[in-house]
Design a protein around this nucleic acid. Structure first.
Lengths: 242, 242
DNA sequence: GCCATGTCGATTGTCGACAATCTGCATCGT
DNA sequence: ACGATGCAGATTGTCGACAATCGACATGGC
């Protein structure tokens, strides 16, 4: 989103970014697409060999991913894709509610009209994609809605925290695979929020936003329970000592 | 705090932790003590030479610090200690309010009694140190109060976010140098919060906590304006292009 | 004089090799 | 049989050297 905002820094996109960034992006995409599954080990040597680079940038890329919480690194034992326990999902969504309602209050205090306008535009686009049944684009617009909301708060710290959190959200959603009808119910929750914002009714807007996120969380946790029944995690706390 | 919680892993503290961690701790201490000032450049070669290690762990340590927001790294241009604009201070304290009020609600929902008990104990210790005029210990107990509050929420994501934020708070406080009377006013704000928690009055407790943090923020921003008048930052957005 | 270009020193980015540590299995003594 | 000890093998941690990039100054053409 902020990669090529320089006028024409490179004619054909030679990708002059540091390798660690490119590697981190590649790994992140692989994790979010489910190509690399939770619990799986990310071995530096292997990744470096596969990408044809040295281990140094791979290590730094892994550290990047560790910060955003996608992977977990234990000294001398390696890094693995984070497992998602039910508690994790609850934490992610409760935190998301906190951050986004804060953003909403702040954005409305700053300029409720502008906030409503920007969000309504996104809702329009989302509605179009929903009409033509393009669910991946609907989902993309949904994310853009929330990202825009955060952006309107003009709070860099908040923006940074949300970006990390959003990655976890995407990881969670990648593991579920929502049905179309499911996202359907979420899509039409956006407009009432915008309406409340436009009316300047902070508390109603906050309440609706919180409900909206809670609905998404419920949907995801339901699917999680089904998934757990099929594919048990190794997080069950078995007795094997040391 | 969680370094030597293993029974007796090492007899005499050989410090078997990865170098990056030790380096990061050392740098962090240097930054928080004011030994390294905001805006100052952290040159990998120099740090490595001074500590007698290679650049690799130094780079990783710097990345660690960049995550917690203490330093800022620009590709190919180096890492510098973050400057603290007035906006930064506002962001840190507003975010802190959000996180801690969330923690308070959650802790009270979990077990208000236990929360009140734990916090009151800390207040007692804080009172003792205040009585004997040991202000550095008072400040340490103040931090422990808030850390405990976060801990009672039983929310790892929240705990992680707060830990990073707390580092920023400490950086801010390190640059001010509060007077004793100033901390004084803050110390006696803790007990009313605990009282409200014990009564199970969530909204009052939240309000008092928010006020408490706001008071601390005001105190700090006042001192900030004085400091700015003396030492101007280079963040003023001068016209020099490219 | 002014802008484009070339060069230089400093610093970061990347690489390949070596050392330290962990896990699991075999070995040994009892 | 059982637990402690001591190897491998694999993987991460650290190192020193080389390459790429940046900012600033000097140089040259207009």
């Amino acid at each position: 989103m902020d990669a090529n905002d320089r006028p024409h820094a490179n004619l054909a996109g030679v990708d002059t970014r540091p390798l660690r960034q490119q590697i981190a992006d590649a790994l992140q995409a692989a994790i979010l697409s489910g190509e690399i599954k939770p619990g799986e080990a990310l071995i530096e040597t292997e990744i470096a060999g596969r990408l044809g680079v040295s281990r140094a940038p791979v290590r730094e890329a892994l550290q990047l991913l560790a910060n955003s919480g996608l992977v977990e690194t234990v000294p001398y034992r390696g890094t693995t894709v984070r497992q998602l326990s039910a508690d994790d999902v609850e934490e992610v969504y409760s935190m998301r509610t906190v951050l986004e309602t804060f953003a909403l209050r702040r954005a409305m205090a700053r300029d409720a009209r502008a906030t409503a306008r920007a969000l309504r535009d996104i809702c329009d686009v989302m509605g179009q994609h929903a009409g033509s049944g393009d669910w991946s684009r609907v989902s993309a617009e949904d994310e853009r809605f929330h990202r825009q909301l955060i952006g309107m708060a003009e709070h860099r710290l908040l923006g940074h925290a949300w970006r990390d959190l959003n990655m976890r959200v995407r990881q969670i959603m990648a593991l579920r695979n929502l049905q179309n009808e499911d996202t359907m119910t979420i899509v039409y929750n956006h407009l009432p929020i915008v309406d409340a914002i436009e009316d300047g009714d902070v508390e109603t807007a906050v309440q609706r936003l919180a409900d909206h996120i809670a609905t998404a969380a419920d949907l995801v946790t339901e699917l999680a329970e089904e998934a757990v029944a099929v594919a048990p995690g190794d997080d069950v706390g078995g007795p094997p000592e040391r």
